[in-house]
Nucleic acid binder design. Structure first.
Lengths: 156, 156
DNA sequence: TATCCACTGGACAACCTGCACACCGCACGG
DNA sequence: CCGTGCGGTGTGCAGGTTGTCCAGTGGATA
């Protein structure tokens, strides 16, 4: 069920240079191509690798503003709220959470002014009672997994 | 600077079936291969597509617990805190934000118990004054961009 | 010891990529 | 009205890569 050291190096390699194919990867890992291929297949079927989707930058799409909103939901309205939020394109991610607030939403907008519109659209729904928003100023650590992979591969 | 309808369809296609190559994509889009290739190149150089990194699932790596922590930082300690957090493998993402709290951290752990260890490590640093954590229970909308791409492509 | 499993090295055809070239239609400015 | 630039279309080619299969090897296990 775990990930061994070879898997770890393979994942790192792919994370850093996704363009390289199985053959090139096997060369750099110093193993036979069939091995690299088998490892990759296994990682995919095990679900460790979900896919190789293109990494799209919302900023380059014209949505340079990112924000996180914490929502408070009326009891029993969860499902409706989820459906509503899923219908808003600017909602990139939605989690239900413990603690103060019931949901955490990641959203983007074209500008700070546009963020107001997005928030209005997000909270303009019956089941949502309160929302508090935090605008992202900087992103010193963009979403990453390599360090985690390294750790997971370390402890066999 | 924008994204036209063809770009949008190309991105959607790649997002849904990353395995297909340029040739197959061009066939499905009903355009010449050279066109698809040129579009893809342009999207890459414009920064819309950052890359094709493997989409790794932390849960499958043995880290099924996700949480968000809001940190309060001592004035002037920002840089040190950033460096400290960047050194923690379980920290997947770090944002500096406005509003209550100064930073938002996304972290993972092997279990709820393990989360305690991770949080201790995260907040066990001099510049950090307070931390409030929200554990993710469900993730009804995983990180997505397709709807946004569609919208960006819609308004030419 | 027999068996299972992963890895190796090699081979094959089919396919895709990167690149180049000639040509066409359109928009724009002179 | 014409030249130019840009993006798209077809086409072609060499080289690399993929998917797949096979036989052989070594280690771990029952």
């Amino acid at each position: 069920m775990g990930i061994d050291e070879l898997d770890g190096r393979l994942l790192e390699l792919l994370a850093e240079e996704p363009r390289i194919g199985v053959l090139e990867a096997s060369r750099r890992l110093g193993v036979a191509r069939g091995t690299a291929q088998a490892r990759l297949d296994r990682l995919r079927t095990k679900g460790v690798i979900r896919g190789f989707g293109p990494d799209v930058d919302p900023a380059a799409l014209g949505y340079p503003v990112t924000a996180f909103a914490t929502l408070e939901i009326k009891q029993g309205q969860g499902a409706d709220v989820r459906a509503h939020l899923a219908g808003v394109p600017e909602v990139l991610e939605l989690h239900t959470i413990t603690g103060q607030g019931d949901m955490l939403v990641r959203l983007v907008a074209r500008s700070n002014a546009d963020l107001q519109r997005v928030i209005d659209r997000v909270v303009g729904f019956d089941g949502i009672m309160r929302a508090s928003t935090a605008i992202v100023m900087e992103n010193p650590v963009p979403l990453r997994v390599v360090p985690l992979v390294r750790q997971a591969a370390g402890d066999l």
